[in-house]
Design a protein around this nucleic acid. Structure first.
Lengths: 259, 259
DNA sequence: GCCTGTAGATAACCTATGTTGACGACGTTG
DNA sequence: CAACGTCGTCAACATAGGTTATCTACAGGC
């Protein structure tokens, strides 16, 4: 019997570290501005709302199922995912969160959180009190528009994942996944020259993302390696041939853009 | 070479019929009220905005990819789906629309429509001008909240579909799909006693929804029939044993509820 | 230094699902 | 009525991907 690695809810076992405030909210502000241009004072206002900046280790639950949203949660660094546990040994990831993204868009309609959000590697998140957000939202409506556009992209990304799982084979799936993450990380400046970026996931976690067994993920990675499309080791991915990979994946990043 | 049945955009070939105004907006109003309770005058205001009520035959595009949203589109009767065409012979459906639903939630953030929406059987849709909606939205904010909750459910439904395609086998997938449609149609009073409802889809279209081949859809339907869980013929489905079907599918309808 | 657990790699085998092709029932069109 | 296309059904076969099991390479704890 094998159990899924989730290091318990933060509250219980591994209290996440409170980080010295004021690190890079910048990712978040740049992201919001990319979604919908904000006035400088709007940017400053949002930045001022971010509090309790917190670090999580790998495999910790940042948000739990069924909880009402009392805060908007923003990923500031690292990588996280939405997932559903199916039983003790199976899990399906349903979405991915890169720095600058909201962890869950349910707060826009005070919907409860509908799925757990888990850190993949080391992550840093910030919290925005919804009451405070509401008080400034009237005067600074662009902030909400930007957040709603983020939600719209999240929706588009989910649909794309449906296509990936429903209509593509293993090689295409993996290629598409890597293209999406690469595209999104590049958008927030987290890809270094040569197409290299951090992707703190095990092959077994790729399986949970792509609906494949661990063994088959391995086989599939080999194929992409043999075709000289990528290298991948110790959580570091390099895209050797982006156009080639995109061609394999039939990847078209437009669904990730706000307009 | 086989081509996918889409009877061309309405504008081009088969002009959809303009229906005598004032039919059942009721589904839509009941739906909105279920999402977030509206004041009676809010309900009346929304109802007044619905214009150009239009009938579509099967396999017509109600909304097209890439178009900016200039109107919110509401399904008033029938069944529709989001889909992406992959090539001339393949298509993946990515979401389903039942009466009372918005066809696309992009209008909330003036995002463009990100995927085509196609009628499955005969459908009736209504249009809401976004300019008019904006003018009343300030005074009647609950309408927007209800719409945002609908969007949140749409998102949850997409994630559930990801789980379905990524982690479940053919029998579970089909069972889950039927459970979801049944649940949603029941919510708008379109299931008759005995669990019978209209589902105007061919087996090949089930395949496009579930990521299965037509032949395997057929095999899978046989299995559910043999287990006395459903009957299905000529676009009419009867759920013989809802708890049994839900058990097979591991279906839990909470993700379809607003809170 | 040794033990242990986790991750990646690989092989042998198994099975769910895809593919091709055939057939009958039915509705539509001429 | 004949011709045709679509849909559902079924059988035979092909294959992508799942399962189980080993093995190696590390990293951490003692």
């Amino acid at each position: 019997m094998t159990f899924l690695p989730v290091d318990g809810d933060l509250q219980v076992r591994t209290p996440p570290e409170l980080v010295a405030d004021r690190p890079a909210h910048d990712v978040f502000l740049r992201r919001l501005n990319g979604l919908y241009p904000l006035h400088p004072h709007e940017s400053r206002a949002v930045a001022g709302l971010i509090h309790n900046v917190t670090a999580f280790g790998p495999h910790q639950n940042i948000l739990m199922d069924q909880r009402p949203s009392t805060e908007a949660v923003v990923l500031l660094d690292g990588l996280a995912c939405h997932y559903r546990a199916l039983d003790t040994a199976r899990r399906q990831m349903t979405g991915f969160i890169v720095p600058g993204d909201f962890c869950d868009s349910g707060f826009l309609s005070s919907s409860p959180v509908r799925q757990c959000v888990m850190s993949l590697g080391d992550t840093i998140v910030g919290y925005i009190d919804l009451g405070q957000l509401a008080t400034i939202a009237d005067k600074l409506p662009n902030i909400i528009v930007a957040a709603m556009r983020a939600a719209s992209i999240e929706q588009a990304s989910s649909r794309e994942l449906v296509i990936n799982l429903g209509a593509r084979d293993a090689v295409q799936r993996l290629a598409h996944f890597l293209c999406e993450i690469h595209y999104r990380l590049r958008g927030v400046g987290l890809v270094s020259a040569g197409g290299k970026f951090e992707l703190p996931m095990t092959q077994s976690e790729f399986g949970e993302a792509l609906g494949l067994s661990t063994v088959h993920v391995n086989r599939t990675i080999q194929q992409l390696r043999r075709k000289k499309l990528i290298t991948m080791a110790q959580g570091l991915v390099t895209i050797l041939d982006q156009p080639g990979l995109a061609a394999v994946a039939q990847f078209d990043g437009r669904y990730l853009r706000p307009n």
